[in-house]
């Protein structure tokens, strides 16, 4: 059972990383225009800094 001592923190840390990533995407406005973003992928333009 000693393995839990580091496995639990590791799982929490990984989940927390995912959560932080979600926050970051939300703050950057990546969920503001779902319709537009799904269309923009079809054009040839390089939009590597979505607003």
């Amino acid at each position: 059972m000693n393995v839990l001592i580091y496995l639990i923190p590791v799982s929490l840390l990984l989940g927390g990383l995912g959560l932080a990533g979600f926050f970051w995407a939300l703050r950057k406005g990546q969920f503001d225009d779902p319709d537009g973003d799904s269309r923009r992928i079809l054009t040839d333009e390089h939009d590597d800094r979505p607003g």
Binding site: R39, R40, L42, T43, D44, E45, H46, R49, P50, G51
Partner: peptide, 28 residues
């Protein structure tokens, strides 16, 4: 057509346009 899109953070003096007819990647 390829076009360069820069990120636009809405500000106070921005001009807002309503575009009722747009619906596709080409329009954008």
């Amino acid at each position: 057509a390829p076009v360069e899109a820069k990120p636009v953070a809405p500000q106070k003096d921005d001009i807002l346009l309503s575009l009722p007819g747009i619906h596709c990647a080409g329009c954008i």
